[in-house]
Amino acid sequence: MDKLLKLLDSNARLTDEQIATMLDISEAEVRAQIAKLEKDGAIRAYKAVVDWDKTDRECVTAIIELKVTPRRDVGFEGIAEQIMAFEEVESVYLMSGGYDLSVRVTGRSFQEIAAFVAKRLAPLDSVISTATHFVLRRYKESNVMFLGDNQDERGYI
């Protein structure tokens, strides 16, 4: 299972046949293992790592630090559920340290994100304060380097 997850984690587009060859198990076994991982929720989704700067689409990302008041009974989860329901929100983490929730948001422009924070996030009952940090440049995302051309510098012997 670990090896299969490691392969998919590095390249989710490998075919069942390729994975079967690489792990020396049958294709049926690959399908069964993946089905189980999906069913158990270990595999949540398959996505591409996109460098939006290389496309025509405008894309701005911000990381927002939220301080919130946990609610009786539901704690942080109630507010987290509320926030993760917004489609602009890419990720929500509960944090240790100086603030409570880290929210990653993408939009088409700074204005769009500013409006989202001002009109939707900040007014929520439990939110005490927000601090919005815009991403200026992505160097690495999901283990993939966005910076440099990754030239193979190995010599020839």
Partner: peptide, 13 residues
């Protein structure tokens, strides 16, 4: 070694 091994199977295939 494990990493090479899976690549080995892949390329031979």
């Amino acid at each position: 070694r494990e990493d090479y091994d899976s690549r080995r199977r892949f390329i031979v295939g």
